[in-house]
Design a protein around this nucleic acid. Structure first.
Lengths: 239, 239
DNA sequence: TAACGTTTTTTCCAACTGGTCAAATTTCTG
DNA sequence: CAGAAATTTGACCAGTTGGAAAAAACGTTA
């Protein structure tokens, strides 16, 4: 199973020179397009992406400003613009590189394994991602909230394909009587929803749990609860 | 059980005149503060709030502009500003009036009823809210994503109180052996997460389910799945 | 060290932002 | 209908926004 190719709409404005080669210098002002990146370029891009993740995840794409990102990255706005000529470019880079690791747990849901430990560990790993990469989760959630204009292609393409594949795995388990027969798509949705909730709605979770239970231990509590929920539901008398 | 008083930080910049009465005209330019609203005022405010809900839920607080709201409401920016002197005022009004109906299903979770139908209907009603008021759900989710700066007070106040109360109900049911013993708070979180997911991540859900299964029927599918999940979990062999 | 490519800074801009204000218009009330 | 109150408009403003241009500073290597 090849790693999902998380290709965005396109990785930059169409390559210089259309059908009829436009004479003269490239119009897109493609400053660092000649591929091999220098050390400094790699380093600075990383710094920028890290800063951008902070700002974008907190303010959303529209709410974030280049100035804020530049300041968080410790450089001037024109300097940042030297590495990423447009705001959207940073955002897209962030989104692609993020989706890749974000979907890793699902990709590893193994069809040859046993349903119980497989599902159990999938849920746990998803929850760990919420704990360890909350900014990425919020970035993605923000994009979804806005209707995913910069990412729909991936959703309908690679993501759907991956989910289709894993849904089949779940269905087979159901056929074999190892899992209760339910809708595999909604099962996946519910795992996503419950785990990501702890990153995306962190404020609410903390506020409701209060100072005593809202600390780091809340992830262990959540893990325990979700395991019970998904394995047995909340009823005492099983049907 | 009195209806939650969903009071925001405060319902307008502090009433004119501080401790030491500031002489002269009110500085806050309190145009329509003398309470009894005219017919036009009520109508226009409704139109504005409706338009603002569209724009805010789509772009977030920061991403939305007064101009966009004004255009969606079919009036000029200064005219809109005549009814709501600041952008944040619209947002807060929206949030308060929304939270009220948003929490209604939880409020109605009845301690005297039987756990099974009570929980079942709570889940269904929450899911219905996601279907019928997706913009409100997204508005709230967006606020959460940004750390809820304009709403933390409510979360830590009335919301926490309500959840505390209902958690006790759940706990009693567990004591009586009517519910499996688990964490009631995380149970509530998981119901919120799974149901609101269908509003907040609508694009993703549609994209993954595809054209055939992404239609209106998806809510019935979700309802069936969630009922099974919460009641029995996904295992065939109950422990 | 001279020349060259890379990186950074300074300056600038046009469009947009939230919001004000006074004047003009409409609606309501007697 | 007159007059007052409520509503709407057009002009305006200071600050911010994403981004462009060019020049300056820097680093590297012959």
């Amino acid at each position: 199973m090849p790693p999902i190719k998380v290709k965005m709409l396109d990785s930059g404005s169409a390559p210089e020179g259309g059908e009829i080669a436009s004479v003269g210098a490239p119009k897109g002002r493609a400053k660092l397009r000649g591929k091999p990146l220098t050390r400094i370029q790699r380093e600075k891009q990383d710094v920028i992406l890290e800063a951008a993740l902070d700002v974008f995840s907190e303010k959303g794409f529209l709410g974030a400003t280049i100035d804020q990102i530049a300041e968080a990255a410790g450089m001037s706005k024109p300097n940042l613009l030297y590495y990423f000529p447009r705001k959207e470019e940073i955002y897209k880079r962030l989104m692609t590189s993020m989706l890749d690791i974000w979907l890793a747990p699902l990709r590893e849901l193994d069809s040859v394994g046993d349903p119980v430990p497989e599902l159990r560990s999938y849920i746990r790993r998803k929850l760990e991602m919420s704990r360890d990469f909350p900014r990425q989760s919020r970035l993605f959630a923000g994009e979804m909230l806005q209707g995913g204009p910069r990412i729909v292609d991936v959703l309908e393409g690679d993501l759907k394909a991956l989910v289709d594949e894993k849904a089949k795995v779940l269905e087979r388990w159901m056929d074999e009587g190892k899992l209760r027969r339910t809708d595999p798509y909604h099962l996946i949705f519910s795992i996503w929803a419950t785990t990501q909730h702890y990153a995306d709605f962190d404020v609410q979770v903390r506020a409701v749990l209060g100072r005593d239970r809202g600390g780091e231990g809340r992830f262990e509590d959540a893990a325990r609860f979700l395991e019970t929920l998904f394995m047995h539901g909340v009823l005492t008398k099983p049907s």
